[in-house]
Write a protein that binds this DNA or RNA. Structure first.
Lengths: 199, 199
DNA sequence: GTCTATACGTCGATAGAC
DNA sequence: GTCTATCGACGTATAGAC
């Protein structure tokens, strides 16, 4: 597909998403202006409206894309349903950590900016989030049923484990004391213990 | 101390803090205007500046008060240093849950609005937060040293357990399936397991 | 202590030139 | 595809009347 000479649209669209992601993560949706984003992209504010209907759509698209990426990546990565709950839990934890540590900004926005979505947009993201929680809840329930795990409430355990894993994003730094590999092992231990896994 | 007739200062000051807490928690600091807060309080926007130097001070005072309340409440509640790490951990978890479920708005703001603090104000809150994390870290370290607990990294375990506990605030509802007492027991199990407590 | 009025900046979003 | 210019609304904060 030939590109018009002087046209820069695809590149600008990508830059817009990236600049918005970084700025929203750093300063918060409400505190970031379209002019700020435009400055980062290197265009004037008006030009942004060629790529997004409005500021709200910009936020929603970022969150929606992130959740779709997450669920799709899991579908690809998930081990076949035949394996044990223990193996599935290990797979989930490792997947979660790898995926989330590579997208710190997106994860941050996805948890901080939910309240800045319109009710309709919020519902869409909420549904995706519940689907993700459902993955973990299914694993815990299966393990609980067969006696591999031991938690007093699978729903609460699901929330607790997700919160624990998401919390990693608030302190992990690439240049810090721990490598991703080490973090993965540490959290795997914590999650397995919390789930009461008989290993 | 006699109150001037027509004067309403103390009441307004209190209403200001309460309205700001609710609105900041619901819509976010950046998205809430002084006019909105004033409307909630029942005064004009200009009158708020009798009680706060500016919007930033208002946010900081709320967070600072919350952290001071938290640390002071722990000092009162904390069991004497002689007891076992296991007992201390149980005490900490029960304390955390009770304290945090009674102040959902303050907790929410304290975690969501850190980035809207000026660097100087941020440092103050960060120090208080680290002090709170330090309480848990001390308990875990002590238990780890004497073999009661079993975690692969006490620092990460501290972060993970705090995240898990804080996460409770995002889903707990008074009118929900679980009573505070039940939540307390469920999280106690989860934390003890995560810490690898030999019970 | 609270009001009204307002200074002054910035916001999101659009119109029309190039 | 991007620019400049602009609209109308709203933001924080202050001044001065009562």
């Amino acid at each position: 597909m030939a590109r018009k000479s002087g046209s820069n649209g695809e590149k600008t669209a990508k830059q817009l998403r990236e600049a918005a992601t970084v700025l929203f993560a750093k300063n918060g949706y409400a505190a970031v202006s379209m002019r700020q984003i435009a400055r980062e992209v290197g265009v004037q504010a008006g030009a942004l409206y060629l790529y997004t209907a409005d500021k709200q759509s910009l936020l929603f698209d970022l969150l929606d894309q992130h959740m779709q990426d997450l669920l799709q990546a899991w579908d690809v990565r998930a081990t076949p349903h035949a394996v044990t709950p223990m193996d599935r839990l290990e797979c989930f934890v490792r997947f979660h950590i790898r995926f989330h540590l590579l997208r710190t900004d997106e994860v941050f926005i996805s948890y901080m900016e939910l309240r800045n979505l319109t009710p309709e947009n919020f519902e869409v993201i909420q549904t995706a989030r519940r689907a993700y929680e459902g993955i973990l809840h299914d694993i815990l329930s299966a393990g609980q049923a067969e006696g591999t795990f031991n938690v007093s409430d699978t729903k609460v355990a699901t929330y607790a484990i997700i919160a624990m894993l998401i919390g990693m994003n608030t302190w992990y730094r690439d240049e810090g004391r721990l490598s991703i590999d080490m973090v993965e092992e540490i959290y795997l231990d914590l999650v397995m213990s919390a789930a009461g896994a008989k290993r």
